[in-house]
């Protein structure tokens, strides 16, 4: 539970044992400009097929990270709000226990990993994801001839009929660990970056290791702006968001939770 004093801790990992790392991200919404660079970088890095207009119309866009854009206020005082949403790699992931064939599981390093070979495409995980970040391959992926050489050899190309989602660039993590053991020198905070974090012009996306108490994300998450997305669901995400700083908001509004299921309650019995 995050509160104003302690910031947001990374979600507990319910499954999986102890390991050296617990990967995670901090996303600073205050810094996000909605430029979509992360989306494109992710697309190129992870061999995601080109999203044509038809996909958008049919709500079948294949994006592992998306920028959600909301308009706030009445004209002329309209403000655009952006929030990048990607797989939250929940410690207590709703998608995991519902898969009948163990196609989605937790890695010991806190990643929610998808085993493409095993997936039969029941899409139950997609239904149960409260963040809607799991995408289904409705048809076989295709690229124009000119892009065939662009495909990343480190990442598999997924066929039709399976679920895929953000892997937090697990191939980069693995490569970094290999280099670490080859060089004999532990990697420093910031050496390793997934494509989205690397491409973010405002450094709104910061990747790091929660196990490292001095990593940038650990320090940022201690601030008062930190929160988890849909925290009340108890999914224990590994991704921490930093709240937008809005000078126009009153102190009260800034502290009110986004979700109030009940009306304000009167004090009963004195």
């Amino acid at each position: 539970m995050a509160n104003e004093q302690q910031g947001a801790a990374p979600g507990r990992v319910i499954a999986g044992g102890e390991s050296l790392h617990r990967w995670g991200m901090v996303i600073d919404i205050d810094l996000c400009t909605g430029c979509q660079a992360c989306v494109i970088a992710c697309q190129a890095e992870n061999n995601i097929p080109i999203n044509v207009e038809d996909y958008f119309v049919k709500h079948r866009v294949n994006q592992w990270i998306r920028i959600e854009r909301y308009w706030e206020g009445e004209f002329p005082n309209v403000k655009a709000r952006f929030i990048p949403v990607l797989c939250q790699h929940c410690g207590n992931a709703p998608c995991e226990p519902v898969c009948p064939v163990y196609a989605t599981q937790h890695s010991t390093e806190g990643l929610n990993v998808q085993t493409y070979n095993r997936c039969v495409g029941t899409r139950y995980c997609g239904n149960n994801c409260p963040y809607t970040v799991r995408v289904f391959n409705w048809d076989a992926p295709q690229w124009p001839e000119s892009l065939h050489a662009q495909l990343n050899p480190d990442v598999t190309v997924r066929t039709q009929g399976l679920i895929e989602k953000c892997s937090m660039c697990v191939h980069r993590i693995n490569r970094a660990k290999r280099e670490e053991s080859r060089n004999g020198r532990p990697m420093a905070d910031g050496d390793l970056q997934p494509a989205c974090a690397q491409s973010c012009p405002t450094s709104a996306i910061i990747f790091g290791d929660w196990k490292d108490q001095n990593s940038r994300i650990s320090r940022l998450a201690k601030g008062t702006r930190a929160y988890h997305m849909l925290e009340e669901l108890g999914t224990e995400p590994t991704i921490v968001y930093l709240k937008k700083v809005d000078p126009n908001l009153s102190q009260h509004e800034a502290t009110v939770s986004h979700k109030t299921a009940y009306r304000p309650l009167p004090v009963i019995n004195g």
Partner: peptide, 8 residues
């Protein structure tokens, strides 16, 4: 019962 205002 306490006042039902404010509770389901």
């Amino acid at each position: 019962l306490p006042d039902f205002f404010g509770r389901p």
